[in-house]
């Protein structure tokens, strides 16, 4: 029986009644279910990390931190180092983030700041979201057969004209960082654009009104008011996009060249952690698999750090611009 000392005491005619035992039951069941779902996710993450960690343990013992600073991956000599892969992962993801970020935010501004009619906006949005539905392997194929031949003349010209610039210091001989990063940029574009669009749409109309009311031009309204207001949401999109770029595997394995090479050049082949894993696993022996597990762990840690850092920056902008604690 539910404890209710008020029923008798209050006026006899009141219709107020306490929640029934059944109502309380539903409350408890739902709460338990929510706790279960939330803890299941945490358990799963812990389990994955633990499993990969224990598989990688022999390799961690053998190679130690030298694994992270080593530059050769040679299964025959038992030498394993992933510095070029770490470099390639971060470098390609960063280029993709810059290109995808600029275009993604640009598209979001174009779609939300009344540049286009609502119907046309829907067409644009759907098309961009369609980009997210294209499988990674299709991007890889498109990259090999369309993008690389397309890039080659331009890359050659850049290399010949500006070969003193580190970015263009080598020739594009086929697969390489530039096509890989460009495809990555296209792949993260929908994420960045969609989340930025939402961030802009969340801004109350009265903020826009205030900005126009001050006598700001459209450009000033967007740059000085709308962008800072949407910045925490846009950052969330950028972090998600960057995370996706870090972990993207198939298209990169097809396009980046899989060469252990640390170079600033956009046209030199390189390698990424995810691509290393995908292309090496099928033929790896026991020792090499342990090293690959170690590499997977490194990738996990990088992704984790990026996400935490992203969250911290987001919190900072929220405090700075929105006054949220």
């Amino acid at each position: 029986m539910v404890h209710d000392p008020f029923k008798q005491a209050s006026s006899a005619r009141t219709l107020s009644a306490p929640p029934s035992a059944n109502d309380y039951m539903k409350d408890i069941v739902f709460r338990a279910f929510a706790y279960f779902c939330a803890s299941a996710i945490i358990l799963l993450v812990v389990y994955i990390v633990f499993e990969i960690g224990s598989e990688a343990l022999p390799a961690i013992k053998t190679h130690g931190l030298g694994f992270i600073t080593g530059t050769t991956w040679d299964a025959n000599k038992g030498e394993f180092g992933v510095l070029p892969e770490i470099w390639g992962t971060l470098y390609s993801a960063l280029i993709a983030l810059v290109i995808g970020g600029v275009f993604g935010v640009g598209i979001a501004i174009f779609l939300t700041q009344s540049f286009v009619h609502a119907k046309l906006e829907l067409v644009f949005r759907t098309t961009i979201e369609l980009l997210a539905a294209i499988p990674s392997v299709v991007y890889g194929l498109w990259g090999i057969y369309v993008l690389i031949p397309l890039l080659r003349p331009g890359a050659l010209w850049l290399h010949e004209t500006f070969d003193w610039v580190p970015l263009f210091s080598t020739e594009l001989s086929g697969p390489g960082l530039a096509p890989a990063a460009l495809v990555l940029a296209i792949m993260i574009l929908p994420t960045v654009a969609a989340i930025s669009v939402d961030a802009f749409k969340r801004i109350p109309y009265r903020v826009k009104e205030a900005a126009y009311g001050m006598g700001a031009t459209k450009w000033e309204v967007i740059l000085k008011v709308m962008l800072p207001t949407a910045s925490s949401g846009i950052l969330a999109g950028l972090v998600l996009g960057f995370g996706r770029a870090l972990g993207e595997t198939m298209a990169l394995a097809m396009l980046i060249g899989n060469v252990n090479n640390i170079s600033f050049s956009l046209f030199s082949p390189a390698n990424t952690l995810a691509s290393l894993l995908a292309s090496t696993f099928p033929e790896a022996g026991d020792i090499e698999v342990q090293a690959l597990m170690y590499a997977a762990l490194v990738l996990l840690v990088i992704t984790f750090i990026v996400n935490v850092a992203g969250l911290a920056i987001q919190q900072y902008t929220m405090r700075k611009f929105e006054g949220k604690k």
Partner: peptide, 18 residues
């Protein structure tokens, strides 16, 4: 835009910028 620079406005609901 020029009109609004000379004729300012205060709105019903507070709308400070972020």
């Amino acid at each position: 835009v020029v009109v609004r620079r000379y004729i300012g406005m205060v709105f019903q609901l507070p709308n400070p910028f972020s």
